[in-house]
Design a binder for these strands. Structure first.
Length: 206
DNA sequence: AGGATGATATCC
DNA sequence: GATATCATCCTC
């Protein structure tokens, strides 16, 4: 039984570390959003690391702007942006104040109080109820936070690394293995096509 | 394969 | 001020 009022937010120190490490450790954790109409809880199963201004795929590679201000700020806060005019994407800010790094949440496994359409960053935000009003929100709060899964599987599933999705413009950084997901999880947003193999699948199979 | 739909960055 | 570009999703 998942009682969100018994769950404790991860401490800010969790986020104040190497972004790749935080990304990997976020897998399997629960994200909790408390709304007037109830609690929405999902298990994080797919993420991407955006390392900082030197990472040409990261929004912070353009410098400090109104949009990227939060990503350059202290760790443990939420960076939300609107993409393609219709979808929200949610990131958690990592590393010390001024670094400009974050982890994009790409897919959840529904746990409680949410619809089942949680594959992909846009659908994740819709299911969780996240929009631009959450820009800068503190994850060390009781309204929106990430926490250990009290029913975590032992041993934990293997972690798979792959290139990030939709960043082909980023030169050398486009192929960096900075996307991480739980091996075999049915809620992963897509499977990278293997080179040299005839395979027209763009979505993963159940 | 292409369209929706709006904020943002970058160029006049 | 105009325009090209999106860390996407849905429908055809």
């Amino acid at each position: 039984m998942y009682m969100a009022n018994m769950l404790r937010p991860l401490p800010r120190d969790f986020y104040d570390r190497d972004t790749t490490q935080v990304a990997r450790e976020l897998l399997g954790k629960l994200i909790v959003h408390r709304l007037p109409q109830g609690e929405r809880i999902g298990r994080i199963v797919e993420v991407e690391a955006y390392l900082g201004p030197h990472d040409l795929a990261a929004h912070t590679s353009k410098g400090i702007t109104d949009r990227t201000r939060v990503m350059f700020g202290p760790p443990g806060h939420v960076y939300v942006y609107l993409i393609y005019g219709m979808h929200h994407c949610m990131n958690v800010v990592t590393e010390p104040d001024g670094t400009g790094a974050a982890v994009l949440l790409r897919a959840l496994e529904p746990v409680s109080g949410m619809d089942l359409n949680t594959r992909g960053p846009g659908r994740l935000c819709k299911a969780l109820g996240i929009d631009r009003s959450h820009y800068g929100a503190d994850l060390c709060s009781q309204a929106l936070f990430i926490t250990e899964d009290p029913e975590a599987a032992t041993p934990p599933p293997a972690i798979v690394a792959s290139p990030r999705i939709g960043v082909d413009y980023a030169g050398e950084w486009a192929s960096a293995p900075l996307r991480f997901y739980l091996d075999g999880n049915p809620y992963i947003s897509r499977i990278i096509k293997k080179a040299g193999r005839r395979d027209t699948n763009k979505k993963n199979m159940l």
